[in-house]
Design a protein around this nucleic acid. Structure first.
Lengths: 247, 247
DNA sequence: TTTAGTTAGCGTATTTTTTACGTTTACTTT
DNA sequence: AAAGTAAACGTAAAAAATACGCTAACTAAA
């Protein structure tokens, strides 16, 4: 089956670890994959979103295209974190059969650029996800995945953690306005640690780019919290390079 | 000229930003490129080390191969940092002509995996570099380079800085035994900052993986410094995750 | 209406780290 | 022997991080 399948480059693909934050959990968007092998065995598992690039497509644009197909959103936070180039990384016959069937190409060797992206789940249009058999799954409850996607997620999470330590990218996962407790919980689930609420709020309120709104929470059985928003312009203006180093 | 050139995959390449530290300077290994265009114009510039992968070669192994060809060393510290996938990133006719000539392929679109590596320059066998027209150049004095290699170096340096803040990888650039002043200078040139020698030594001597040797410097016109070595086993054993975050 | 439960927010105290800087020691050169 | 220089030892102050108490402010239950 030579060159009669989709108009793709069958050697280069992008995979996306799409992180979202909801109900105090860090979640990842996975695609349910269901098909029947030639042997008659029915497969029902999950995989990461991703696709082969088209013949002349920019890798970053391919990743953005994948995100938009699943969420309906443009200009989503997107960060490369690893590329996978072992010649034998696709060796499971089931995976090979599935790839050949879905691309119309005889897939051999694939080099993959992996990205992680951050989305506020409530911004997404669930119709897109439903149409593509995509579902949000708690990062701590990821099932066994196709290909090397489990490993990719672990690596993506490590890169997300490192990035979050150095830049306030967590805001990409939150709605326009949020409470300090929501921000703290976000940091706790991503960094997998426990933070003291009193020390956390003191620390982040020292920044000039966290803006307290006049609006407070409603309908909560405790003292209502103020809402805050992230002022990216102030952040970019006062962005300071961290000069410290761990030793 | 189809498939009659070198036995390579003409679509995927690796580029290496090889950092070395010498005479208190962070240096990068560049390849001098000299050839005559079909128009008769003589080109004499520099480029990063790199190569196309062979047909079934692992990307990481291709990068290691490139390093070994230039330095004679195996098992060098190697870190991926970016994957370049814009379809039009090779557009300079001179670069295209050079690629076609040196590969024996009609090169069109190239996707490149960029790595940075860290080498103690004195460990290298200069015969290898000489043979390959490679020369060490101060990172602050890099000339205009072929392709997008200038951009790749800048990005590589940023990744090196981030990595150095989080892990003591600077030791890869130093000899087996070194003084604290050498380590400090290394940090200063990579992070592009000035550190107080008294505070720097206090900080790093708190770690258990910096081992003071009995040997001291000789032939210096001031109090001789003690030599130290980096105990990787102690480091791996006591490696502690940094739980802090910048805000 | 009062009470209970819960979290937000304000706060103090202590510890740790960072930063700034002085001084003595120990070598080579003059 | 003196001078010059950097290593090493050190103190002090400031800043940041950590630990934790307590009051305020809401809803729900009694």
């Amino acid at each position: 089956m030579n060159q009669s399948g989709r108009n793709i480059n069958p050697h280069i693909s992008v995979d996306c670890v799409i992180f979202g934050f909801s109900t105090n959990q860090l979640k990842v968007l996975l695609i349910r994959r269901a098909f029947t092998e030639s042997s008659g065995k029915h497969i029902n598992d999950h995989k990461l979103p991703g696709d082969f690039i088209t013949l002349n497509e920019d890798l970053d644009l391919a990743a953005s295209r994948t995100l938009e197909e699943l969420t309906g959103l443009k200009d989503i936070y997107l960060q490369q974190f690893i590329f996978l180039g072992k010649p034998d990384r696709i060796s499971n016959p089931m995976d090979i059969e599935w790839l050949n069937a879905t691309t119309g190409h005889k897939i051999q060797r694939v080099v993959t650029a992996a990205y992680f992206s951050l989305i506020n789940i409530t911004d997404t249009n669930s119709a897109f996800a439903i149409k593509n058999n995509a579902t949000w799954i708690d990062v701590k409850q990821v099932p066994n995945l196709a290909f090397d996607h489990g490993t990719i997620i672990c690596t993506g999470l490590a890169h997300l953690q490192l990035a979050l330590r150095n830049e306030p990218i967590g805001f990409e996962l939150l709605p326009e306005k949020f409470t300090i407790r929501e921000l703290q919980t976000l940091y706790e689930v991503i960094l997998d640690c426990t933070l003291d609420n009193r020390n956390f709020r003191k620390k982040i309120l020292k920044s000039s780019y966290l803006v307290q709104l006049e609006e407070k929470q409603r309908g909560v059985a405790h003292k209502p919290a103020y809402y805050y928003s992230f002022d990216r312009k102030i952040y970019e203006k006062h962005k300071k390079e961290s000069l410290g180093f761990n030793f």
